[in-house]
């Protein structure tokens, strides 16, 4: 790792100030992706601003209407243990491994927007709102392609709000080495329609499979998606599976998520 200073502010405004001054700074969530990246010397910030000391960014809160709010610095383990919300607790309980879940945070995962990460699929399918120190960003506007988001320099995810949902389910098919999603599909049935979000499969990162949404709006059953074509033009093709295989998995997992939802 290159040399850097590590700051641990306890208030959001202090973190924002540190991230906005003239020192080249980078926010540090749980570090489960960033620290390995730093070890490879693929990043060289002058300063890391740890967000895990900010208590106001931690916690899982459900209101009576079924809305769920999760602080940006909340660990996967805490979401797994406390999120009484369809699909989300299981999703969190299967990210990485227990030690990773004890450190990794939802905000860190979303800000990184790894194309094979699980949370982006949940946020997109559940039509969640990303709350930052400056604004609120709709899920549909947040993800802007692999490792790219709507976040501005120095902007911190302080919380994520998930609206009440009728039913939801996440199906993850493991990439056998990294145990990230080779393909992950999150299906959510809202009062105003079905949303299907796919991670792991596309070179553009997480995406909504609109044809499946349309079909499921008419008939919320696995059979509804069986005959659909998955666009495979921009599918990831690598050591672990071709684009065609990923496209096939998208369909299979969507069907399974519908069945399990």
């Amino acid at each position: 790792m290159y040399e850097f200073d590590l700051e641990r502010p306890t208030r959001v405004e202090d973190a924002v100030k540190l991230l906005s001054d003239s020192v080249e700074s980078q926010p540090l969530g749980g570090g489960q992706t960033l620290i390995p990246t730093l070890k490879q010397r693929l990043a060289s910030p002058e300063r890391l601003v740890s967000l895990t000391g900010i208590d106001s960014m931690k916690g899982v809160f459900t209101d009576r209407g079924g809305t769920l709010r999760i602080g940006g610095a909340t660990t996967h383990a805490e979401v797994a243990a406390k999120a009484a919300y369809p699909g989300l607790s299981e999703l969190a309980a299967n990210i990485g491994d227990p030690a990773v879940r004890n450190r990794g945070t939802i905000g860190g995962s979303l800000a990184n927007n790894d194309p094979a990460a699980c949370y982006p699929a949940a946020v997109l399918a559940l039509n969640a709102t990303i709350g930052t120190n400056a604004r609120e960003i709709a899920a549909d506007d947040f993800f802007q392609g692999m490792f790219t988001t709507a976040l501005e320099e120095g902007e911190i995810i302080t919380n994520v709000t998930f609206p009440a949902v009728r039913t939801a389910n996440y199906q993850k098919f493991l990439q056998p080495a990294s145990r990230f999603a080779l393909v992950g599909v999150f299906v959510a049935k809202h009062d105003d329609g079905v949303r299907v979000a796919v991670t792991g499969a596309s070179n553009d990162g997480v995406f909504r499979w609109s044809a499946a949404e349309e079909a499921l709006n008419g008939d919320f059953s696995p059979d509804a998606v069986a005959g659909l074509d998955v666009p495979d033009g921009d599918m990831i093709s690598d050591l672990h599976g071709s684009g065609a295989y990923r496209a096939h998995l998208v369909k299979v997992l969507t069907g399974r998520a519908v069945a399990a939802a």
């Binding site: 056998p176 080495a177 990294s178 690598d238 050591l239 672990h240």
Partner: peptide
């Protein structure tokens, strides 16, 4: 039989260069 594969691309770059891609 099921998991492990040390793979190179045609240019000799190691594709499975860490536990992210070499399945233990």
């Amino acid at each position: 039989a099921l998991l492990e594969n040390c793979a190179y691309d045609e240019n000799g770059q190691l594709l499975s260069g860490s536990y992210m891609d070499y399945a233990m």
